[in-house]
């Protein structure tokens, strides 16, 4: 913080507030400073810095970890839009390092290999905000309880198959609608079933929405995919391998940005979808054996 300004940093409002400003936007995975510049130029609202995109993590296997700090520095230096970076689930030291590097958001991500199969990071003590993945409402509320300032539905990263993203965003929003229809005396059991704190469950039931912004992720590869997520009710979209594993990343990235803003206008989506070249090759989620599904990491 600038020394002469009196104010509070790292508050919930400030952490959740940045996510509010990203709404209606596209957050793009990048692995180099050059890719980050292409993403910024194409209209990304933020970039996610990582060492390998999920499709490569999936193909190459092995343990996936936080990126090299030098790579993150390069990306931070190359763009002026917000930079996010991934830490392993439960790896609070990777998170400490990322905060030290000055990233704008940390993604405690199932795309990397978990560092703790029991506990997620206690995100409250950090000044930097966190985004976490979720496949259902209970999982989203547990992450918010741990201090997540933004939620993204998980989908199945690195596949280019949007079906899991559809399932997870529908599940989360559907469960919120169900919760909002419950009477007060039903919310006690609802909290038990969701395995989430009662007060938070009541808050969601009364407001009809999460207390934080909800993006979607995992398998979005085309402008129509992004618009589908927005029509289903997502606040915005993460695109991982879908851009830089495609034939013409700059053009595809710009097209996905347009389709996200005009998600309810098929004419714009049609125009944006023309002549984009090859989409990422893609793997059907049904062909991915259960142990290799990333969405099951985190609980």
């Amino acid at each position: 913080m600038t020394d002469s300004t009196e104010g509070s940093i790292g508050t919930s409002r400030v952490k959740r507030g940045l996510a509010e400003m990203l709404k209606g936007g596209v957050i793009m995975d990048v692995v180099t400073a050059d890719q980050a510049k292409i993403a910024e130029e194409a209209g990304a609202v933020a970039v996610m810095a990582l060492e390998r995109v999920p499709a490569d993590i999936r193909a190459q296997g092995g343990v996936a970890r936080m990126s090299d700090p030098s790579l993150i520095d390069d990306i931070v230096a190359s763009v002026s839009i917000p930079v996010m970076a991934k830490a392993r689930i439960g790896h609070f030291v990777e998170a400490q390092v990322l905060q030290e590097l000055g990233v704008d958001y940390i993604d405690e991500s199932e795309v990397l290999s978990p560092a703790d199969y029991v506990n997620h990071i206690d995100k409250w003590p950090f000044t930097v905000p966190f985004v976490c993945g979720a496949t259902n409402l209970g999982e989203a509320l547990r992450r918010i309880t741990e201090g997540a300032a933004m939620i993204r539905s998980k989908g199945e990263a690195g596949t280019g198959d949007v079906s899991e993203a559809t399932k997870h965003i529908r599940t989360i929003l559907g469960e919120i609608r169900t919760l909002a229809a419950k009477t007060d005396d039903e919310l006690f059991v609802a909290a038990k079933e969701l395995q989430a704190p009662y007060d938070l469950v009541v808050e969601v039931a009364r407001s009809g929405k999460l207390p934080v912004v909800l993006f979607t992720a995992g398998g979005v590869a085309t402008p129509a995919d992004a618009a589908l997520m927005m029509q289903l009710g997502a606040d915005g979209v993460f695109v991982g391998s879908g851009i830089f594993k495609s034939g013409d990343p700059a053009k595809r990235a710009a097209a996905i940005v347009k389709a996200t803003t005009f998600y309810d206008d098929p004419k714009v989506i049609a125009e944006a979808s023309r002549g984009l070249g090859e989409a990422m090759v893609g793997i059907n989620v049904a062909d991915v054996p259960a142990p290799h599904r990333l969405a099951t990491r985190g609980w």
Binding site: M1, T2, T5, E6, G7, S8, I9, G10, T11, R13, V14, G17, L18, V76, P82, V83, Q99, G102, V103, D104, Y105, T127, V128, P129
Partner: peptide, 9 residues
């Protein structure tokens, strides 16, 4: 600066 410097006052 970056998000770490975001504040309310």
């Amino acid at each position: 600066g970056n998000q770490l410097d975001s504040f309310e006052t």
